[in-house]
Nucleic acid binder design. Structure first.
Lengths: 240, 240, 240, 240
DNA sequence: CATGAATGAGCTTTCATTCAT
DNA sequence: AATGAATGAAAGCTCATTCAT
């Protein structure tokens, strides 16, 4: 973030010198993302992508087999980074409630910064099996991490032990992702996102029956919002 | 087949005698539903629908303006009934926890019986603005009802008063609908749905900080499942 | 032939009233034949065929699935008639030599009147498996008939009994068809076809060791040419 | 692989040391033959040939002007040798019947060993004028030689003098080449080739009315098969 | 109302060939 | 000579929609 050469949004800049071919491929990817975001998958034409990348129509097919192919490439090469674990300096000993809120805030950032891409992901998942698999994989990764956290907290006796950890994880991920998806991607609701994150996190904590050892959540008062600390619980990095 | 409207499953049969034109229109609707479920919106062709309805290709356009038109008609005329309020006989004085569980069970039934249609709804909502509006309306109706219930229960002091009722309603609807959507429509997971409903309901109740006057939820034990009683909290009927 | 409405060359005129669709299909077939003959299979474009039939490009696909499809249709619907058995009035008791000559003369007529089509058949057979099958079928039908005649004549003791009838039939059909093909289709040689048929027939008769009971072939003199009588030996009608 | 031209089967190996450029050209030819045999002319792509020769796509055009160009080169540089006169040691004084059989046997060998190439030759001749010329030239060479033999034998009074030598030669070449082509290239018939050659040769001899001075063909018995002696009658070498 | 033939814009994809490096 | 990226003309095919009968 600090010493990197100014990444533009979520799309990562290639780090090393590129051959001419790699450069063209990269330009096509960037152009495709732009065109897909502007027109959606269905209305986007290969011609649009090629034109935006300033290459001949046929050049497109030197690098990608089809519109679907480049679409998947955009998702697989540009999406994962937005889910990468981001460490955040000091923040010693976050309470469980804080961790939940950190996680949800991280989610908010991801949906805020990539709403178009995520809308594309959902759209394509409805008709492209491979994209569906990608989406399922991302979701599973998130669920797995949450599930582990729930189990650990159940062992620590600070979470309702009557909950099925796996199903609960699935439900909570559904709540967080779909809420943000609804608010930011499909419905464009004008909720105050600060309040929304706090409410969502409170529901989440309540749902688990979360009891901090040191009673970090004062009964019926808003949690203190902060983004410090390592976000672990919601890391969706598919490769981890 | 010839003199009977042949109702099937959730699709409502017309109640009164139909003119020939109405009959043809109805046949087209039924066929469209079948074709859309089989092929998805994008791969379905008007020709398929006409063929399945045993009418000439051109006849289609006597009744519907376009493929999108009949698609919307299928959704608006066949979907609403699946969200109809279903009263459930006796069941006197259900506890709040029971009501939550009843609601979620009703949700389960809806997703179980209409997974294809609901998948179509999601798919079409990603590229058809009118369908998107329809989906948003259905969701709002559900959220409104939940919100009212939350507010009422907050007034009765049996729900966490620190929660923003509107946002909480949105989150909880997201959790329930998206969980079922994931489990039954997109991922086809083999979770035991009985356990899933119970876990989901428990999370829901916990999230709200639900306290029954008569302590209806024994600490850390599964709720008794029943489908009797009137499902109010999740009624999505857009007309109500 | 006499009371029919002026058939044009080898292409048969439809006999009954045609619906609009059948008329269009027929026009496309006629146009396709013309275009294929003019440009060959490879250079012919669907657009050319549609244009020649004066229909929209898309109309083509109402009747045929692809260029290959209509090509096969042209061959299967227009070729078989050119091989149909043609009776030829009186000519009582043709001698075996006369029958051979009749057959070859019939062959000549077929190749003369349909050289373009037969060139197309050969061309397409080199890359279209179905056309190859068609060609093989036509050839087999011819071989079968010749074989039967050879066997019968061997039984009558007027043909070299040391010949394998099947292989001999295959060789003789190869000789006749490929000679005419070379002379008339590929090389356009300016041989006098009258002499050519006579020489070919004499070779054929010699090859079989043909001995007429009444010595119909005067030693070393040209046979009398005639086209009367029923041509049986070379009937290639695949349906018989 | 590196310092050897790797000759394979019928394809002639270059005899002298090659420059790097010549080596590349040769590799391209070998690769082209392989690719054409595998895919046919139409489906073969320049890219395939270059890839198989392990050179860059563009390098192809340093050596050949087009796909058609290298195709012709393959035919002219690799086909002629297969028609080379092959002397066959001792075999003193072959009878005319033996010579016919030798010739047909030689033909059989050629078609057996080069069916793919000969199929390609036929295919390309249907759409490439230059290849057509090549094919006609090969055929003419064969016909010329047969014609000379026929004339000589007619002068020797051992062949039917009523036959037009040129047309007869054309017919007999058609019979032999097209029979083998049908049996081995297009139809893949499972005739016993030994019997086939004998039948074919017998027909050939009969057709010419061949009378050996010393009656070399015992009435209705198979000729003795041998491949010894110089094959003259069917030598197709276009350069002779 | 029903028919079904006709329309044609619009998209994807291929690959022989060129050319700057 | 060799490279391999870039070119772009061409063609096939689809299918929602129209319309004359």
């Amino acid at each position: 973030m600090i010493d990197e050469p100014a990444p533009s949004g979520a799309t990562p800049e290639p780090r090393t010198a590129l051959t001419k071919g790699q450069r063209t491929r990269y330009n096509l990817l960037i152009s495709a993302e732009s065109v897909f975001e502007r027109l959606g998958f269905l209305d986007a034409r290969v011609a649009d992508i090629a034109a935006e990348a300033k290459v001949a129509h046929g050049t497109f097919y030197t690098y990608f087999e089809s519109k679907t192919d480049i679409f998947r490439a955009v998702l697989t090469e540009f999406l994962p980074p937005i889910y990468q674990k981001s460490d955040y300096g000091g923040a010693t000993n976050p309470t469980p409630f804080q961790r939940v809120e950190f996680g949800n805030r991280r989610f908010l950032d991801v949906y805020r910064g990539n709403s178009k891409m995520l809308a594309l992901l959902e759209q394509a998942a409805t008709f492209d099996p491979e994209v569906k698999v990608l989406r399922t994989k991302l979701r599973h990764t998130a669920e797995r991490r949450i599930r582990r956290n729930i189990i650990r907290m159940q062992e620590d006796n600070i979470v309702d032990p009557g909950l099925d950890a796996e199903i609960a994880a699935s439900c909570l991920v559904a709540m967080a992702t779909h809420s943000f998806y609804t608010w930011l991607v499909t419905d464009k609701r004008d909720y105050d996102m600060e309040s929304a994150v706090i409410t969502l996190s409170r529901l989440w904590g309540n749902a688990l029956g979360l009891k901090s050892e040191s009673s970090d959540r004062p009964e019926y008062r808003s949690v203190t919002s902060t983004t410090k600390g390592v976000v672990e619980s919601l890391d969706l990095d598919a490769t981890s």
